[in-house]
Structure formats: C-alpha cells, structure tokens
C-alpha cells in the first residue's frame, strides 16, 4: 500500500506538504482553510511580542518566476494570537507556530506561549531577510543560533524547528550549531535577498527597497542547500523554496528533505496546490515502486 504519511521530528503528517509561514496563515480561519485544502501541516505567520503593521506598500513584486516581498513581519502580536490558536484547535492538520524575536530570551518567551496555545511544534524564524534586528540578522551567527535554540529547548517540550537563510556562506555551520543545541529539525530555506527597480520611476519598487525572492526562481538554490544539509546533519530537514508541483517536491525529498513547505505556489498555482502535489507524488510512487515517502528521502545521495 502506497502511503504519503510522514513523521518529522515526532510530528505525524498525513502527507509531506506543509503550508509555509507568511502565506494565508494570520487567522485561524485561513489556517483551517489551508488544512482543508490538503496541507499535511500548517505554519502560522511569524508572530512577535507586540502587534506590528509591517512595511508600507508596495510589499510585493510579481516576477515571471517568483515574487520579491518585504512584508516587514506584520502580525497581531503573541497576546492577540492566543484567540486565533484557540479557534484553530481541531484543525485537521498540525499547527506549527512560527515566531520571531531579537534575543534568545524573547524567543523562549514566545515559544512557551505557542506551546501553551496548543502548537504542535514551534518554528524559529532565524531567516527573514528584510526586518532590522530580526530573522537572518541573528540567523547567520552560529553562536547566536545555538543560544536561541538552547534557550527555547529549555522551556519547550514540543519539537523545535529552525528556519534558516541561504543568504550566508555559513549555512552548514549554522545548521550544525542548531543541531548541537538540540534542534529537532531544520527548515531550509527562507527567501533570497533581492530587489526590483522601476526604470521609469528610477527607484526600487518595494517600500523597504530590498526584499526576499521566493518561488521557482530559488528552487535550485534551496535544493542545493537541502542536499548539502542532508550530508551534514542527522536531524530531519524540511525543504522549502519554489515547490510548485509533485516533481519539485520529490526532488527536495530525494535531496534529503523529509517534508516540503509550499508558500508562493499558493498564489501562483492556487489553493489546490497541496492536493495536486500529493496526487502526482502518489502516482509517481506507485509507478516507481516506493511504498512510503521515507523510502525516497535522500536517495539522490546513494
């Protein structure tokens, strides 16, 4: 019997497609709708200590092969998010709470809140490329990442995932530091630093000027990161970056990912993208004689 079920760091998922943070995940109703659309798990918007408006518009540029965004981490704050998490109880897929903070202490405060709210796991945003004092500003420093993970692990019994940035030559060192500190899985990658300029207006389009590139344009980058991480780490890897169809997802899995996250494709393909990936993946597995997703993990290394 061919099955799409996977287990990632003690999280049981009905299939290996996970809604990526930042996409359709700011309200309970959005998260529930994405789970109903077929996501095997859903990750919340990155939540901080206080309500935050994010950057003024434009916050998105559409390109042929992806998007550049600089949303600026808009979120209702951890206190107000309690209500969304309460309403999301009974979600047919595990809800993973994404958090961002500027220090290890603040991360552990937010993580314990997410655990109290019933999150199935917590994802540390150590990789947002466009918010001053947050995200990759911490996430490119192995010592800082180690401190954050250790602090969070000391207050959390739920699995802890670290979402890392490809905007560094030290990804392997950062990932090893996270693993050594007790991290349960690595999520790779977040968006790639990018920009778009309007030649008529003679200026960057995004109000923040710089942003992060996502979508098919970054798939080869994410894939290489996951492949290298699989050679380096013993903990599971969740692959992200330009997954739009079953073939992309299987590529990531063969590179070493135990599951994949899907973000930009929710806009580019539609809400049915999870279902389409799963159907295609299952057909491929039947054709190729794979009975479980785990049999495919990392086979590109053999």
């Amino acid at each position: 019997m061919t099955s799409l079920k996977v287990e990632v760091a003690a999280l049981k998922l009905s299939n290996p497609t996970i809604l990526a943070s930042g996409v359709m995940d700011e309200t309970a109703a959005s998260l529930l709708n994405m789970a109903r659309a077929g996501a095997g798990a859903v990750v919340t918007k990155s939540i901080g200590s206080e309500p935050r408006k994010g950057y003024p518009n434009p916050t998105l540029v559409e390109l042929d092969w992806g998007y550049i965004n600089a949303m600026g981490l808009p979120n209702p704050g951890i206190e107000a998010f309690a209500e969304e998490m309460r309403l999301a109880r009974g979600c047919p897929a595990p809800v993973i709470g994404s958090i961002f903070a500027s220090s290890a202490k603040e991360f552990s405060f937010l993580a314990s809140k997410m655990q109290d709210y019933g999150a199935a796991a917590v994802e540390l945003n150590l990789s947002c490329p466009h918010a001053k004092g947050y995200g990759m500003e911490l996430g490119v420093d192995p010592e800082m990442v180690s401190a954050v993970v250790r602090e969070v692990k000391s207050v959390c019994s739920i699995p802890v995932f670290a979402k890392l940035t490809p905007n560094t030559h030290q990804l392997m060192e950062v990932a090893k530091a996270a693993e050594a500190a007790g991290c349960d899985a690595i999520v790779a990658v977040n968006t790639v630093k990018a920009m778009a300029i309007s030649v008529e207006m003679r200026r960057p389009i995004l109000s923040n000027k710089g942003g992060g590139l996502s979508g098919p344009a970054i798939k080869p980058i994410g894939l290489r990161c996951v492949y290298d991480l699989h050679s380096t780490l013993n903990i599971p890897i969740i692959g992200v970056g330009g997954v739009e169809d079953w073939r992309d997802a299987v590529e990531y899995i063969m590179a070493g990912a135990s599951a994949v996250q899907v973000g930009s494709a929710v806009g580019r393909v539609g809400l049915n993208v999870f279902e389409l990936i799963c159907t295609g993946m299952k057909e491929f597995m039947v054709r190729e004689g794979f009975e479980s997703v785990s049999q495919m993990v990392g086979v590109a290394h053999e």
Partner: peptide, 16 residues
C-alpha cells in the same frame, strides 16, 4: 498588502 493571494491580510473568514 500583497493583492495577489499570498499574504492573507485581506481575508474574511479565511477567504481571500
């Protein structure tokens, strides 16, 4: 914010 069906800031009952 994005206008393009991604960010979820315009949702009503989780619908874009």
């Amino acid at each position: 914010k994005c206008g393009a069906g991604l960010c979820g800031s315009c949702v009503i009952d989780g619908i874009r």
